[in-house]
Design a binder for these strands. Structure first.
Lengths: 206, 206, 206, 206
DNA sequence: TATGAATGAGAGTTCATTCAT
DNA sequence: GATGAATGAACTCTCATTCAT
């Protein structure tokens, strides 16, 4: 009996936490900026304003967590690709096309992570995401350099540049509201693939 | 007499406008965020708060103009390089190294345009800057593709990716406060030059 | 014309400042504690909440000023007595009886300065008042010791004790709401006069 | 069996009540103000917040009880002195020096009862303490007046004044943080003894 | 009886914008 | 055209108290 009660309580707590996160995410997407009044977050999540502060020490922490969660999923996907046994060239190819494709499909959420204006306190979370992404890419580049598939280069620098290239391209594509509804552009995906492969000089494997 | 007075009035007007812009730019640089209280802007510019609204319809417009002006200067420099008679490869090389070098040297201002968190209303101005920069780069890429120096590619897409790559690399470099005071990193400049030249496949000219 | 306008503006400003102070004083007296919501202060003073902050940097500053103004007046009266040419014994006698008498007559205001619970930020202002009062009394005591009217003693310590004795006696007298409306007690005044004169051993002058 | 259980329950209850009071006292001393968040009190006492409300109807009641208990102890000591068989003069002398000395030694707790800013609801408890102290002193003064050791005077009024004198002197002494750590000032004790003895005109016994 | 998560009113403060002078 | 005092809605965050479990 007792543990059931505990379980139920735990579920409700988790539920509330999730509802707050969800409400924030939706508000942020609607509002078009990585910000939302706590009072409105609470209203949407059907909790009192004080309750929000039981789960998140401050507004900044709440928004940071929203960014973190959204980022982590994308990151996991790309990291999975990076760890495969394939050749570096193919891994980079797949990683880039997957990332761009997913961003274009889940446009509104991607916007949060990539494009939208951002509050000072949260910018760290976004930077962290970009760096984590760059780290994954850098692994692939380093492998490629080692196997001779890619040209000699600083993998960390190249990875950062690739991330930037992807983000900026998506930035353009996502900036128009139309992008949210329409089909992703095949051209953009292909252009990015080719750009990134050339940038690391993947031609060496021919 | 009359026109003189008119002229003087016009000068004073222009003077006030410039003082407001200058005050804003300084405040923004000091504050480290693309924002500044209008009351403080007015105080620094030695005008009344209401006067700020005679020259700029809203705070957002004022900040947008600050970004626009700061961007335009950088843009002019790069555009000058793009319009020279040199080969596309050399122009791209010079443009990239100049841009990165200038950003690293004028770190605090570059930060405004590239790195810092940004208010919703102003993000458009920054995006405009990036696009204008991409347009200039696209011209070089298009020339290179035409002359056969570069691989076949969509110049607009490549240019956007290059701009993103530059921004992200600078982002990392400028994120640390040290960057503001220290000498620019030669390594970063060289890495970026090599990355961008590879990305357009400038090897064809060898 | 211009100076008239300036004058009128200045008058209105002063007026508003006074209205804010007055509203605060009344709220504090009604509320029975040295505190008042800024929103309510503003409402009573017929100004916007933000306007209060134009005149006082913070709520604490506002309340401190209320205490300071109320204190200063009482202080001036006692200081005037202390500076007269009379013998120390007579000056102390007059100072004590005047202070107690005034406090009992202006009971509600005296309460602010002496009795009522107090916020942390404002307690400094009250302490300052008590110390200033003690300084004035100490002057009299020192004179009396010098002329041999009073016993040898530390004037500062004696003055602090006298101030405490007065405050505590008033505390009792003012603590009951009845005191606010009724006539001041002649007995209390006389008791305090006698107590204080004995305490400095004014008997020496006989 | 049954009564044992009842006893144990009663002990636990009492234990909880004491733990809550103790936790509050410690928090108050640490915090330096006669206030403490109920949530924190509960945490320190290892009970739930709701439990605090089983033992004390409100926060004010809890804090009042803390003040009452702390006061009572001091009061008992002074009352013990007042009830001795010694002459009034000696009892007053001992009472005053004991009170001041104890306050200076147990500075942090004394501060609570004498000096610190106070919430509206609790001020009654402090006033009660002062009055009880005055009552004890008044007994001594009345005795002294009766035996002719002291001058004719209203014992209640004199006692209140003495309490005020003591409090104010301590107020000054305790207001500085240094007082908490340093040795008590012998001078202050002596000055207060002399002041109070003069004030009741204890010279008559010579 | 004990729990402690939830409540929600209320706090002080800021600042873009307006408009009477 | 210039002034700058005034506006007041909006913000985040706190915490005494309640009550379902």
């Amino acid at each position: 009996m007792a543990y059931r009660k505990t379980d139920r309580v735990r579920e409700q707590l988790e539920d509330k936490r999730l509802r707050i996160l969800s409400a924030t995410r939706h508000l942020v997407m609607e509002g078009g900026s990585l910000d939302a009044p706590i009072v409105e977050v609470a209203r949407r999540a059907s909790v009192a304003t004080g309750t929000v502060y039981r789960y998140f020490p401050s507004k900044t922490d709440l928004l940071t967590e929203v960014v973190r969660l959204a980022s982590q999923h994308e990151l996991d996907v790309i990291a999975g690709i990076a760890q495969s046994d394939a050749r570096a060239r193919d891994r980079l190819d797949t990683a880039v096309s997957t990332f761009v494709d997913r961003a274009l499909r889940g446009a509104r959420l991607a916007r949060l992570l990539i494009v939208e204006p951002i509050d000072v306190g949260i910018s760290g979370a976004r930077r962290h995401y970009r760096r984590a992404l760059a780290l994954v890419i850098a692994r692939i580049v380093a492998d490629g350099v080692e196997t001779g598939e890619f040209a000699q280069q600083n993998p960390a620098a190249a990875a950062a540049a690739i991330v930037g290239a992807l983000m900026e391209s998506l930035n353009d594509a996502l900036a128009t509201e139309s992008a949210v509804t329409e089909e992703p552009s095949v051209d953009l995906v292909d252009e990015m693939r080719a750009f990134c492969l050339r940038a690391v000089d993947a031609s060496k494997t021919h």
